[in-house]
Write a protein that binds this DNA or RNA. Structure first.
Lengths: 129, 129, 129, 129
DNA sequence: GTGGTCTAGACCACT
DNA sequence: GTGGTCTAGACCACG
């Protein structure tokens, strides 16, 4: 199971769930058309509130990662991400900015950061071209 | 002026201030020994409460980026970062993980992310080795 | 009740609260996993502002004595103290230095100070080896 | 020179000066009847404000460590400490309490603390009986 | 109901 | 004039 919730994290639980699903899609563990666990079962499994899982699913739907089908639950739906890639790049840059600032301040060379990127790409089995 | 607060951001104001100072150090705009504005003047300048600035300064102090001198205000103090670099790398990986997951899901190649890293390193004038 | 705030002390209230929690852990009154009162209830109990309690909790969290769980409040979390013990020893020495200086000046023998140490260890039920 | 002021310490400068003089007396560097530097010269030497040194001297006088003689400046006067030793012991215990609490919580044995006491007594050349 | 954030205004110690 | 502390009251995200 790829679900590991850190209840003491400052990252909201529903965000951790969302990230977990996205990571599952990225790694290939979840493919287009696959069903996600029901809100109820995922909530039980992760020991979180029903509403929290619901919030994660709603977010994933609004981002275009999944469809929520009446009586069929949530299914993975790649290839129709709502946000365009241009906006994604903006967000990435905004997210990365403080990290790189701190890296530079600490004297951490660019290569060290790139190595972490590579590591993550490899773990996810993504192409490393 | 390195101060640009986004009041509609989900990022707390004190965190934006903190990031701004770190970015200033990284870019060389703030050098070791340089004085930061007093909490009152920075608060006025940024149109925020002085306690919010105070919180940012306290955080920067606890991270080792600045010293706070009695009646002299805050001064940049590089080279005595409290957190060790090993822990920093862990944090970087944790922060990057969801970004890379989403990138892979969107089919964004590793090289595109690395380009953003390069861009940020260049903007900050950091070594690109 | 482990709460005794001295409002006329030169020691800040939030520091007294912090010390009280640490003392509670040391004495065994607070064990790993135990819940701390909510900031609101503790504030009411101690007749202080909730922000003051919040500051104490934030400090305890940053030192690694407690975790703060969403919607569950603070719980004691021993065994993951952030600061390393080496640094703790440095701080102890710095704190003790003026006390010992004054003791020597007053002709107070080493043994008298050690007796106080013993007394405190015994009160806390700590091993006296 | 035994004067080393840490301007970034949270300990007030006048207190650091006071502690320095007490340490000097404890170590034997300052003996009964010895003159302290004038406020002016000490202020210059330590790069602090005249008032700050004055405050330290006033405190030392009120504690009975020194006399302030008209036109003769400050002279060390041991043997007539104002505060009685009983009260000193109380203060010691109060100061030590949080330190020992934290030591117990960290699992630091009594002996480690006592070693630091010994170390300090030895550095000051005090009797170690 | 929980803590997190922000604002506001006050007082204080230090220099 | 500087930051540190405390109080007060408000709003918000989370679960």
């Amino acid at each position: 199971m790829l679900l590991t919730i850190d209840f003491s994290s400052d990252q909201p639980i529903y965000m951790q769930l969302r990230d977990g699903v996205v990571a599952g899609i990225a790694s290939g563990a979840l493919k287009d058309g696959d069903s996600l666990p029901s809100v109820r079962s995922l909530a039980a499994e992760a020991s979180v509130n029903l509403h929290t899982v619901g919030k994660a699913y709603t977010l994933l739907k609004s981002e275009g990662f999944i469809d929520i089908l009446r009586n069929k639950g949530a299914v993975v739906r790649t290839g129709k991400l709502k946000e365009d890639t241009g906006k994604f790049f903006e967000n990435v840059k905004t997210s990365l900015q403080p990290i790189i600032s701190e890296a530079v301040t600490r004297g951490v060379p660019r290569q060290s950061i790139v190595s972490i990127i590579d590591e993550l790409y490899n773990e996810l089995g993504g192409a490393t071209l």
